[in-house]
Structures are given as C-alpha cells and as structure tokens.
C-alpha cells in the first residue's frame, strides 16, 4: 500500500468532531439532524456494521427552544423499579434540574433501539453553556449549520439603531397601544 493510499484510508475512516450551537433550536428537529452525524449516515461509506460515526459537541443546550407549549405539556417518565416508583417530570422541570437532559433524550429516542445505540451516544458531548473543556474543543474541525438562524432580540439593539430603523407610519400622539 502506497503512502498516499494509506493516508487516504486514515482520512476516510478518521472520526471527525463536529460542533453544534443549540441556541434557540428545536431539540427534536436537531436530534434528527445530529443523529446522522453520530451514526455516520452522512458518509457515503456508511454501513450498519461499519463503525464510522463522528463525535458531536453540542454547546448552549440550556438555551434550546421547545415548540408551542411543550415546556408545560411534555412529560418525561421515570420508574425506580419499586412499587409506586413511577414519576412524571414536565419538560420545564427536567430542564431546570439538568439542562442537557432534554437534548440527550431527544437524540437517544430518535435512534433505533439496537446494541449500537449506547456506544453511539458515547460520542455525543453536551454542554449547557459555551464552556467546553480544551481537550475536546481542540479536536473540533467542523461546525454544523443551525436549523434556523438565531434572530437578534429587540433589547439587544442599541437605542440608536432602533430609532433609525425605517418604519411605515408614526402612531398618532393620542393613539393607545394595547
């Protein structure tokens, strides 16, 4: 095997580290996207028995955005195994306890339940904020595009920009905005 072929082989099967910013992203839609990278479905060499999945580092998981009233309605079930040990935790409560849990469960549930799933999950690294350990961050070589762009909030614009923003009409002085 020539040197070129050998290096080509390494490059083909090397694990790539991706980073994904979860700020204001739907965790369930994101899970469908990220599981492809974790399982290696995004590579043309994919095969179910070919261990070609990549690592994914997710940052800012505390800032995910659930659609609709899912924060109040979505319940996560847990059973201790003892009689009467069932408990249902609402999404907002789970997120308060552990800000990485909703994303982790969303990705775990988006994959088929087979023997490979637990090992695939080990290649996932979730952080509630942007503080990623240096030894993980220096591996990262690709950023996954966010599903939806994060809009800039009105209170983040300075007063000058808000004043000079073009508008259609000025409200009359005596107009009451409800």
């Amino acid at each position: 095997m020539s040197t070129l072929k050998r290096v080509q082989q390494w490059a083909t099967f090397a694990r790539i580290w991706h980073i994904y910013d979860a700020t204001w992203q739907n965790p369930f839609k994101s899970a469908e996207l990220l599981k492809k990278f974790l399982m290696g479905v995004h590579k043309p060499i994919y095969h179910p028995m070919n261990d070609c999945g990549d690592h994914v580092v997710i940052i800012n998981s505390a800032d995910i955005a659930l659609p609709g009233d899912e924060w109040k309605k979505r319940a996560y079930f847990h059973h201790t195994g003892y009689p009467g040990g069932a408990s249902w935790t609402l999404a907002w409560d789970l997120h308060r306890k552990d800000a990485t849990m909703i994303l982790k469960k969303a990705i775990y549930n988006s994959m088929d339940g087979n023997l490979q799933r637990r090992y695939t999950m080990q290649r996932l690294h979730i952080f509630p904020d942007a503080n990623v350990p240096k030894h993980l961050l220096e591996n990262v070589s690709n950023q996954i595009r966010q599903l939806r762009p994060v809009p800039k909030r009105l209170d983040k614009y300075n007063l000058e920009e808000v004043k000079t923003f073009p508008k259609l009409i000025d409200y009359p002085k005596d107009y009451i905005i409800r």
Partner: peptide, 8 residues
C-alpha cells in the same frame, strides 16, 4: 442511504 449522504 449512501447516495443521500453523497448528495448531502
């Protein structure tokens, strides 16, 4: 699956 990956 492989073609979809290539297209992606």
């Amino acid at each position: 699956t492989r073609i979809v990956a290539g297209c992606m």
